[in-house]
Simulated scan of single mutants.
Amino acid sequence: MKFLVKTQRGMESVTANYIREALPDAEVWASPMGYSGLVIVETDDRSAEEKILEIPEVERAIKVLFEVPAELEAILSVAEDVAKLIRENETFAVKTKRRGKHDFSSLDVNAQLGAKIKELTNADVNLSWPDKVVQVEIIGDKAYISLLPGEEYRKFTPDKINARKLFRKVTLVQMPYWGDYKACRSFGEKIGRAAQAFEVRELIIAPKEKMDAFELMEFIKGVRVGQESRYQIQREAYPWKVEKVPVSVWDLYQVVRDKRRNKRLLIITDPKGPSLAEVKDKLARDMYYAKEVVIFVGSREGIPRGLFRFADYVVDLAPYMTFATEHGIPAALVSMWEIYEEYSRTREGEE
């Protein structure tokens, strides 16, 4: 039997050596035809898959069912044999990874092989969450065909609640970092990256008093750089359109006046408040129904105590601990999401 083993790029030789130790009689080929992240294993050991998966460097061990020339007609010729392994009441998808130059594309394989299997089985195609995946791995002049169960680890599944339900109505009010120009720039980058990572409704940079214009300028430059770096990654990683988070500057006290006047939910993160566990049920409910959730995050100094009277909640995220400035946004948003998600699931269950 033959296995196509996938690993992190650069780990092929290390992984191959561990496989040779586990399967002394196996033929092991690291980086076939120079393609990284791959190891081909051929062995007669019936427990080979179990032994291979005991190696931490191995990410996946795909058992090859059919090996044919990397030609479209040859790949389609195994459709009948593959169809025997898929029941009519199951859903399936064909996924192809092509390495090398060929006179057909991965989409050609997906479409034509998928159509033929559907015709033979009458099973439905489900590209998002199939019961079974017909995996076609093409390496140079060879095509390896496997049948896999639906993926165990997936980013987007129906049972997960989209975190954007909360974050798209969150406005972050961040006090700027001040002091050394380089430090201002560095902290600005981290804060800009964090705000963009969560795709919040808005980031408001809010000084509490007069401050050095050039220190603020460096901080804002950093925010822009950090935001842009994260935005470019999101554009490549997400299958949907990503927007840049709006960034504005506003006096801290005026933010409180305006948001309070317009009946927005105001949350201040500060060690002087009760722990999140003490208020989570009521806070989660209020966030669920709020039109806008405004979260205030300090920098070097906490949010002025006088503003606590105007907040709906003052919350201590981690008692007896003080977060570094760059950790304020991620700590606050992840904590808020945890209690929001729990409440959302309860609401959905009731409905």
Rank of each mutant, 00 (worst) to 15 (best):
K6I: 02
S13E: 12
A16N: 04
N17D: 13
N17P: 00
A22D: 07
A22K: 15
P24A: 01
E27L: 01
E27G: 06
W29A: 01
S36L: 12
L38H: 03
D45N: 14
A48L: 04
E50L: 10
K51G: 06
I55M: 02
E59I: 09
K63N: 06
L65G: 00
L65F: 04
F66M: 05
E73G: 07
E73D: 15
E73S: 14
A74Y: 07
I75F: 03
S77E: 13
D81M: 08
D81C: 00
V82Y: 00
V82C: 00
A83P: 02
A83Y: 00
R87M: 01
R87Q: 03
R87H: 01
E88C: 02
N89F: 09
F92A: 07
K95W: 05
T96V: 10
K101V: 13
L107K: 12
N110G: 01
L113G: 05
A115T: 14
I117A: 06
E119N: 13
V125P: 04
S128R: 07
S128M: 06
Q135R: 15
I139R: 02
G140Q: 05
A143E: 01
S146R: 08
L147F: 02
L147S: 03
L147Q: 03
L147N: 03
E151V: 08
E152P: 00
Y153Q: 12
I161T: 09
I161G: 01
I161A: 06
A163Y: 14
R164V: 00
L166K: 10
K169Q: 13
T171Q: 09
Q174D: 12
W178R: 15
G179N: 12
D180L: 14
K182W: 12
A183Q: 15
R185S: 10
S186A: 12
F187K: 11
K190H: 10
K190P: 08
R193A: 14
Q196T: 08
V200N: 06
R201V: 04
E202Q: 15
E202Y: 10
L203C: 08
L203Y: 06
I205S: 11
E209N: 11
L216N: 09
M217A: 15
E218C: 10
F219G: 06
R224K: 14
V225S: 05
V225K: 11
G226T: 04
E236V: 08
A237D: 08
Y238H: 05
P239W: 03
V242F: 00
V245D: 12
L252V: 04
L252K: 03
Q254T: 11
Q254S: 14
V256R: 05
R257A: 13
R261H: 09
R261M: 06
N262C: 01
L266S: 06
I267L: 09
T269E: 07
T269L: 14
S275C: 07
L276M: 05
A277T: 08
V279W: 08
K280E: 15
L283G: 04
D286M: 05
A290I: 02
V293D: 02
I295Q: 04
I295R: 02
F296N: 05
F296D: 06
G298S: 10
E301H: 14
E301V: 10
P304Y: 05
V314R: 11
P319E: 14
T322V: 15
T325L: 13
E326V: 13
A331F: 10
I339N: 07
Y340K: 02
R345S: 02
